[in-house]
Design a protein around this nucleic acid. Structure first.
Lengths: 62, 62
DNA sequence: ACAAAATGTAAAGCAAGCTTGACATAAATA
DNA sequence: TATTTATGTCAAGCTTGCTTTACATTTTGT
């Protein structure tokens, strides 16, 4: 599953570490999701969508 | 995380087994999600949303 | 060029998602 | 009422999501 996290994060000038802290997960988790190593859980996807102010379907693509 | 799967499924007169087959997961998985035992993975949430013709955010609530 | 910050990656371990098989209870129907 | 269909639940096992620690590489800034 692809996603637009890296681009949306960059728009905000957030580092992976910044985003990780806001999401309350580890930096490695953010990196792994961005680089497509795995998909976030549904609750984490909701948190990401809220922070990046986009519907889940706009951030993630199946 | 709560969800509206049971109601949306009922609208369509689908059994848990019907939905499970359409989603390509086990009946127990559908049951567990409906009864709140656990949340679906993000890919499964996408499948559910497509089948039930609603955005993820309308089906699931954090 | 150099140092610092950011990103990528790996291993080991625990938690959550999902499987199959089996059985109990509830709801629908003949 | 009796039988079938639907739902709930449990256990054991496998896979995936996420953690911490650690280190290598790339990018940024002086």
């Amino acid at each position: 599953m692809k996603n637009q996290i890296k681009a949306l994060r960059a728009e905000r000038n957030w580092t992976q570490a910044n985003l990780a802290e806001l999401l309350d997960v580890s930096r490695q988790t953010v990196n792994a999701i961005e680089t497509g190593k795995f998909d976030p859980s549904l609750p984490l996807a909701f948190k990401i969508a809220r922070l990046l102010e986009r519907p889940i379907e706009e951030i993630f693509e199946d």
